[in-house]
Simulated assay, not measured.
Amino acid sequence: MTTQTPLVTFSGVQKTYDGEHLVVRDLHLDIEAGEFLSLLGPSGSGKTTTLMMLAGFETPTAGEIRLRGRDITHTPPHKRHFGMVFQNYALFPHMTVADNIAYPLTVRRVRRAEREAKVRRALDMVQMGRMAERYPAQLSGGQQQRVALARALVFDPQLVLMDEPLGALDKQLREHMQIELKALHRQLGITFVYVTRDQSEALTMSDRVAVFNEGVIQQIDRVDRLYEAPVNRFVASFVGDSTTLDARVVEVAGDDAIVALADGTRLRGRNVNGATVGDAVQCCIRPERIAVVAPDQPAPSGNLIEAVLDDTIYFGDHLRLRCRRPQGPEVIVKCPLSQSAPAAGAVVRLHLPAAYLRLYR
C-alpha cells in the first residue's frame, strides 16, 4: 500500500435519484493503490451507489471522482478499464468458460495469441485450468464466482470492483472464497474495492473498511481499530457483537468517565464522544472482553457487575453465556471452551475492564 497520491479520490460527492433524498452525502474518500477496501453497511446505506459511481454506471449529482488525479466523473464505464464482479456473476450462458473470460479482451481487439495466453493465465490464477471448455450451467456457484473473477482480472485492470460477489454462496464455501480472495489480492497487488453487508467478511479480507450509514461514512479504518475502537454507537453495534448497558455520567476523568447504572453500580470507561456529567450514555463492550470471576477468585477493585446466568450455549469454538440483570438488557459473555461455566440460575460476577468499555452519547 502506498502513502503517495491516492489511486482514487472522491471529493464532495453526492447522489440523489429523486432530487430530494440524498443516497450519498458529501462523500470524501481516498482509495490507496494496492489496498483491499471494503464498503460495509446495511441496505440503503449508500455503499453500492458509491461503487456504481466509481464504476461509471451512476453519475454523481455533485462533486467529482478522480483517478490518479485525473477527473473521471463523467467518463463512461468502458473507458475506465476497471474489472467488475457482480453478485449474480453475469456470465454468458452460451459461452464456454474460456470464451467468457476472453470477452473483455475480444471487445478490446486483443490479438488471438495474446488473448489465449492471458485467458490461460487467468484460468490458472483461479484454479480453473481444466474447465475451460465447460459452460456456466455445468459449474457450481463457487466455480462460477471464480470465472467471474478471472474475467475481471484478465485484462490487467488497475482496480477491481466487487458487489457482494459471495452473497449467493453457502456459508462454508463463502468462508473458503474469502480466504482465496485475500490470498489472490496479496499475490496480484491490484486494488480491490468490495461491497458487503457481512461484517465478518469485511473484517476477514480487508486492509481497511469504510462503514456506511444513511449515505455517510461513519468510520473508515484498519480492521483491528474498527473492531476495537468504534467511533460511535452505530459502528459499535453494526460491526461485531457488543454487550450494551445504559448509564449516566457522574464524573469525567481525563479521557475516561465514571458512569452509574440504573441500580447504582459505577463503571469506568473510555469517554469516546466527550460526554459530560449528567449525560445519558451507552456502555459498549465486546462479549469476549468480559471476564467471569469465579467464586474462589479475588474480585477486581472496580468495573464489576452481578447477573444471573440464564443459559450457556455451545458454539463449537467458544461458550456463550446469556446473563440477566434485574434492570437493563441481557449481558452476553463469550468464554473459551477451557473455562467451565456455572450452572443455570447461578449468580455470576462479571468484570468489564475499563480499557475495553467504551461510552457513547
Rank of each mutant, 00 (worst) to 15 (best):
T2N: 15
P6Y: 06
E20C: 00
D26H: 07
L27Y: 05
H28P: 01
E35H: 04
L39A: 13
G44Y: 11
G46R: 09
K47Q: 08
T50V: 00
E58R: 02
T59L: 06
T59H: 09
T61Y: 02
G69T: 06
P76V: 02
P77H: 11
H78A: 01
H78N: 05
R80P: 09
M84I: 14
F86S: 01
Q87Y: 09
F92D: 06
A102S: 09
A102E: 10
R112E: 06
A113F: 01
A113R: 10
E114L: 02
R115M: 14
E116T: 06
K118S: 05
K118Q: 13
R121E: 15
L123W: 03
M128A: 13
E133Q: 08
A137I: 06
L139H: 06
L139P: 01
L139Y: 08
G142S: 09
A150R: 04
D156C: 00
Q158V: 09
L159A: 00
V160T: 10
M162V: 01
D170M: 12
R174V: 02
R174A: 02
E175T: 13
E175S: 12
M177N: 03
E180F: 05
E180I: 01
R186F: 02
L188V: 05
I190F: 04
F192K: 06
F192L: 14
D198Q: 05
Q199A: 15
A202L: 11
L203K: 02
M205A: 13
M205F: 07
V216K: 01
Q218N: 12
L226Y: 11
L226C: 12
Y227M: 13
E228C: 01
A229V: 08
A229F: 08
A229N: 15
P230I: 13
R233P: 02
S237L: 11
E251I: 01
A253Q: 12
D263S: 04
R266E: 15
R268I: 02
G274W: 13
D279I: 08
V281N: 09
P287Q: 12
R289T: 05
A291W: 03
P295V: 03
Q297L: 07
P298D: 11
A299E: 11
A299H: 11
L304Q: 07
E306P: 00
L309R: 10
T312P: 03
F315S: 02
R320V: 04
G328Y: 10
V333M: 13
V333Q: 05
S338T: 14
S340L: 10
P342S: 12
A344G: 10
V347Q: 14
V347P: 00
L350W: 11
L352K: 05
L357G: 14
R361Y: 03
